[in-house]
Design a protein around this nucleic acid. Sequence first.
RNA 1: GCCGGGAUGGCGGAAUCGGUAGACGCAGCGGAUUCAAAAUCCGCCGCUGGUAACAGUGUGGGGGUUCGAGUCCCCCUCCCGGCACCA
Length: 862
Amino acid sequence: MQEKYLPSEIEHTAQARWTASQTYRARDDSDRPKYYCLSMFPYPSGRLHMGHVRNYTIGDVLARYHAMRGYNVMQPMGWDAFGLPAENAAIANNVPPAAWTYANIDHMRTQLQALGFAIDWSRELATCKPDYYRWEQWLFTRLFEKGVIYKKMATVNWDPIDQTVLANEQVIEGRGWRSGALVEKRDIPMYFFRITQYADELLSGLDNLPGWPERVKTMQANWIGKSVGVRLAFKIPPAPPLSKGGESLLWVFTTRADTLMGVTFVAVAAEHPLATRAAENNPELAAFIAECKQGSVAEADMATMEKKGMDTGLKVSHPLTGESIPVWVGNYVLMSYGEGAVMAVPAHDERDFGFAQKYGLPIKQVIGVEGETFSLDAWQEWYADKARGHCVNSGKYDGLGYEAAVDAIAADLAAKGLGEKKTQFRLRDWGISRQRYWGCPIPIVHCEACGDVPVPAGQLPVVLPEDVVPDGSGNPLNKRADFVNCVCPKCGGAARRETDTMDTFVESSWYYARYACPDFDGGMLDARANKWLPVDQYIGGIEHAILHLLYARFFHKLMRDEGLVSSDEPFVNLLTQGMVIADTYYRESADGKKTWFNPADVETRDDVAVLKADGQPVVAGGTEKMAKSKNNGVDPQALIDQYGADTARLFTMFAAPPEQSLEWSDAGVEGAHRFLKRLWKLAFEHVQGGTVAAFAGGELPDAAKTLRRQLHQTIHKVSDDIERRKQFNTAIAAVMELMNALAKLEGMDATTRSVRQEVLEAAVAMLAPIVPHIGEALYAELKPDAAMAWPAVDEAALVQDEIELMLQVNGKLRGQIRVASAATREAVEAAALAGEVAQKYLEGKPPKKVVVVPGRLVNIVV
RNA sequence: GCCGGGAUGGCGGAAUCGGUAGACGCAGCGGAUUCAAAAUCCGCCGCUGGUAACAGUGUGGGGGUUCGAGUCCCCCUCCCGGCACCA
């Protein structure tokens, strides 16, 4: 055995052996129980970052642990290969996104392999390959024909200078990131998945996911946002027909129909037909509407901007009282939400209250709470209190509580044909059209005669040309005659191919299923999908808690309803790893553009952060998720090069529990490496004396017996930490403690050496899922030619004759007592009261109360 | 703004079911080894007072429940994630 721990040598040897013997190939035909362990696939951005290392190490620990436990494990890997960054790189470097993406995949695959993950590489897939997206297009056409996909207008960010649609990320403080132009809202036709049709099932299905974190389920439930309210209409007085269908009704939705008698105005979106009509003869209003159309469509921007409005001069009549109500245009009302109009009750809605105060609109109290006095001066929380409030100033509804009032008002509205109760979801249909090149083409042909025609299955895939270099001004596919010009599949006439591509969330919504049968060319999925699905353990960043995970759950149900899978949910257990975060640093140029610097290139001199290259100060931008956009990613490659993959893996697992965010710091890596060297040395010294059979029973000296007890406690703890708690930092700490204790065990007699053998074998096996290379190398030295199995707990080794209990007086720690581990509650109490400490505090008086917590403590209340 | 999460020594973190706060590691300090250094090994290490035994105090801030609160409840502050076209 080598005396020195040489990571690169043992890592290369181990990896070569795994590749040669296809150790991690998942067997489709095995009769062992399956364990499908999946980590969210990476976007091939160029290089691995620490978040990847963390994510894939967590998955690998669980995969390897279950393999040691006898499961038939599948751990696949692939590439979420379409996306915006490839286009940005293309613009910057004049390379086609395809070439850039494939080069990144090759590099990152090499990096993943150097980390020694137990991945079945035979199942690798990339979403930008036609043999993958072909089936996505096929499903699209199926769903289009079923009406699950439909087309409607939707609002996007429009850059008037670059003449292109912008992603929310590309809008910086209301301006286009490249042009600096004020962004405008523009309505364009898009395809939508009718996800709202599945809203109820997506909500109720959360109850069948005990293996998901509560916080994720709560976030999804709130996102879906089921609420029961009332849809009601205000009458638009006779005039040219205005609203949809010429009904002359202005519809709104409210969850607070009980406040209907307090409506003092109605607010509509800038794009609403009523607003458009009112602006025809009102240049001031037209200017305001134009102003409302500026700015991004992001909800966070909408919610935080200053609420502005303008009177249209139009009036509608209240559905119950007939009272004349003014119509305003509000910049906070979105056309694409609900009806594009809201009723305003300033007295009982905080946003309406502020708006009414600002514009001097009437505020009419219609809800009261016992003992509270309404005042127009300032908003108070109770104004909106559904639980305590009851109707006032509301005529026949006075005195009714929330539910009774809503019921009564809904019934009266229904009688007039002006409203009904309605279940509403916050969730909106999923718009998937992207006016971008590097994505999966939407398989639709536009024919003058036949309309939108889905591409027939036999003509799929619609292949995306890979030799395109975008220039930042619109979708380059529009300029490709060979792509655009086509023949209508229905009538054979000349037609135009859709050039929009799909949201990349579509690819990542079903890849987990395709891993079961990546080579199947007869359809989207084959029977192997039901062998492997659902995924037993899914691991990924908490930032995906809502969108990706909700879309994947939705897709699973779509595939189920197509007969492709038989389960209802895709992921049985979910682990959401926390962010890897790091400091950010930037400099701002005169035109307000920020340049971000990597923390590795920044140092602190006299408490000032400066760039190493020029010694000039940089601005600290706070600690944020490692991201390309902030250039604060730490490159794990340097870590691997210097210390080896095992150290990188050990450190990321040891530094923080998986679900918490991990603040990066270079310190600490050294400690992880030191531990591996120490482990190697302990094994080396033992092996030098000749290997022996592990302890198999018999009498032991006290020190060895204590160590054996600690060993079996550790096996119990580590198994529980990995399998149930999924908290690896404490598992590692427990093995470190065990190794510290082992180093202190003296004696070279055969019995002691057999205990040492037992401890080393078990410790190496327990660490192997985390540090597989050194694990394999050491196990081969300790127990040549033996297969490594997960160690079993010897219950007999855990038995203790005497235990120590904490002694408290009035809840404060005052000492300890030793009692037989079998001692009864009475015996423990007696022993505690007899002790010196108790006598001192009791001063001869009897105790008020004695609390005995078995195995833990005794508390004497005096 | 809304939804979700977090805050514990100089630092990362531990305390799993309300029961010894600070495991394990980093940094630091002292010692051994060495010609010297690196590496390694041993020891100390929340704060205040005390030579010490020990006492007091301490888990972002304020209040509460309890024999006992880092953990439960109420209020607040700050930080992080998401907000539908970043992935």
